[in-house]
């Protein structure tokens, strides 16, 4: 094998190892993970939001043609949300603007992510899997405010 070829091959391998190491670091140190199997949650058919500790909420969200239930979630700054998502009909999905939240909502399965909102503002999300004729109208948002008397959900 040519010398330059060997060098190129080793550098390519090294580059990939460095990239991969960075991902492992992110997973270990920053807790950046991808969704996993959820086995400790019963299937649900209605959406709810409830408080589980001082700043922590549990949200059960249902995606359906063509709305998220709930579509607006109003919470105080500093809230952590345990989000469980499923679909009532066909596949949907969404990514929350400016957040590391991206979930597929698949019928017959529950998806989960934990997210914390440290900054006030509106966090928009749009359905990002084709779900039929009105797919482009299926959207929602988290509204995070300095003071929220009563966390609430709209559209359900």
């Amino acid at each position: 094998m040519d010398k330059s070829e060997k060098l190129a091959l080793s550098l390519s391998g090294l580059l990939l190892i460095v990239f991969f190491g960075a991902l492992m670091y992110a997973a270990a140190a920053e807790d950046l993970e991808v969704p996993t199997c959820i086995t400790d949650m019963d299937p649900f058919t209605t959406d709810t939001l409830f408080q589980t500790s001082e700043d922590t909420y549990e949200l059960h969200m249902i995606a359906r043609m063509w709305a998220f239930q709930p579509s607006t979630i109003r919470l105080p700054v500093g809230s952590t949300v345990d989000m469980y998502v499923t679909s009532q009909d066909i596949i949907h999905g969404f990514k929350v603007e400016n957040k590391n939240v991206n979930l597929m909502a698949v019928p017959g399965a529950i998806n989960y992510v934990r997210v914390r909102f440290n900054e006030p503002g509106e966090y928009f999300f749009a359905c990002h899997e084709f779900c039929g004729a009105a797919h482009h109208t299926m959207a929602g948002r988290f509204v995070i405010e300095e003071s929220v008397d009563e966390p609430e959900t709209i559209g359900g």
């Binding site: 990239f19 993970e33 969704p35 996993t36 199997c37 959820i38 979930l103 698949v106 399965a109 998806n111």
Partner: peptide, 19 residues
């Protein structure tokens, strides 16, 4: 990667092969 019902460790295995 963003699907339910597949453990993240197996997703990672597929990620390693992808690299």
């Amino acid at each position: 990667y963003m699907d339910p019902a597949i453990s993240s460790q197996w997703k990672l295995v597929h990620g390693i092969f992808t690299f």
